[in-house]
Amino acid sequence: MGITSFDSISRYSLRREARADVLKVYYHRAAGSLLSRSKKFTFARAKANVPVEFQKTEEWHKLEDTSPVLRQALVELHQLLKPVAADDAGTQDTKQQLLADLEHMERVMKAKLAELRQQIEALK
């Protein structure tokens, strides 16, 4: 997947979009860092045809299954992110992460508002 800085991974999320699974890996980054805060990986869901046994027909149903590469990546990410400290430290880390995300969102919103104001001024 191209991840080389395993020690800077902070968390990950997994969601399903249409016929694919999307894994997003988040990193700890210093303020002002030019490196990305996250990477997104898309895994297509494998399709398999299976016979319908409970009906008296010759039909086949298409089932979608999670990619084996994604399953292995999740196992490895889970092992990398095993909590080593007590629950209080985990709660504190979560709180710090939420505060950092909130500050990041505020910066993004301020920049977007400034950009929109500039565009409005250019129209006058």
Rank of each mutant, 00 (worst) to 15 (best):
T66P: 15
K47I: 01
A73H: 03
V52T: 12
V52G: 06
H78E: 14
R11D: 08
S10K: 02
Q72G: 09
P83G: 06
A122N: 14
V50F: 05
Q97H: 08
S67L: 04
S8M: 13
V50P: 00
R45K: 08
A30S: 14
P51I: 07
R19L: 04
K62N: 04
G32P: 09
L99P: 02
R117M: 13
A100L: 07
R11P: 10
H61K: 15
L14H: 05
I120T: 11
G2K: 13
P83M: 05
V84H: 13
A122Q: 14
E76D: 14
L81G: 03
L98V: 06
L99H: 11
L102R: 11
R45M: 09
S36G: 12
A89P: 09
I3H: 01
A86S: 12
A111K: 15
K82A: 05
K112F: 12
A111Y: 13
S5C: 15
K124A: 10
E106W: 08
A100M: 15
N49W: 13
L113M: 05
T91W: 05
E76L: 07
A86Q: 09
E59R: 12
T42F: 02
M105D: 09
L81P: 02
G32R: 06
A20H: 07
K40R: 15
D88A: 11
A86L: 01
A48T: 07
V25K: 00
D88M: 10
L116M: 03
A114L: 12
A31H: 15
A46T: 08
Q118S: 15
I120D: 03
A44C: 04
R19D: 09
T57R: 02
S38N: 15
L99Y: 12
P51H: 06
A122I: 03
D88F: 06
I9P: 00
F43S: 03
E53W: 02
S5W: 03
A86D: 06
E58G: 07
E53N: 08
M1Y: 06
H61E: 12
K112D: 08
T94N: 10
L99S: 10
K95P: 00
A31D: 15
A89M: 04
G32Y: 02
V25C: 01
E58A: 14
E64G: 01
A30M: 08
V69A: 14
I3P: 01
F43K: 07
A31N: 09
S33A: 10
S38V: 14
D21W: 10
R71L: 02
E103V: 10
F6I: 04
Q92S: 04
S8I: 14
Q96D: 03
S67E: 15
W60A: 01
V22P: 02
A73M: 06
F41G: 11
L70G: 01
R37Y: 12
A114N: 07
Y12L: 13
L99M: 14
E64S: 06
D93M: 05
Q72A: 05
A111T: 15
D87T: 00
D93H: 09
L63Q: 14
S10M: 01
W60L: 07
S67Q: 05
M1D: 08
Y27A: 02
E53L: 10
